[in-house]
Design a binder for these strands. Sequence first.
DNA 1: GATGCGATTCAC
DNA 2: TGAATCGCATCA
Length: 187
Amino acid sequence: MKNLSPAFFSSDPVDCARELIGCHLRWGGCSGRIVETEAYRALGDAACHTFVRPSARDFVATHQAGDAYVYLSYGVHWLFNILIKGPQGDGFVLLRALEPLEGLDAMRARRGNYADRLLMAGPGRLTQALGISGAEHGCRWLEQGQSGLTSGKPDSIVSGPRIGISQAVDLPWRFGDPASKCLSKPF
DNA sequence: GATGCGATTCAC
DNA sequence: TGAATCGCATCA
């Protein structure tokens, strides 16, 4: 297990999304195993925020690889993305589901008394469980000591279409460990 | 200052 | 399976 540095995110968004499956995320006093991600490309991907939002394009231009891109979905749920800036193109990786490892009590205090497998089984659920909100938007969380990523490998990784989007629906840029009990939806 | 709409969740 | 929900970005 080695720590992932911001250099890990100076690569291809789709490669990063795939390689993050099985890695361990540490956030404050909580941690979890990443079991589901999605990739978004800044260029040529109609589902990416950069496609219609000047503010998203500005974010890419003014932030560094690995920085947090956090935004509110449906006016209710915070979604956590990691900025990718690589030679093959920029983009984001959306964290969609984690298996809780440490800090389950703190997660329940924030989310309610749900079963373990439901604490972070969804992009809005995991931010609520970890206490991530708009305050973390733009932050360089990988270099803040109490939070970070360590590498790991799942038994297998599968891919499929991304969830909840209306554009570019055919691109198979959702990745996950099909054996996990904590997916937001089965593959 | 108004409008449209969403990278979802939870309860029914 | 279906409805809530409201904040934010965008543009006028």
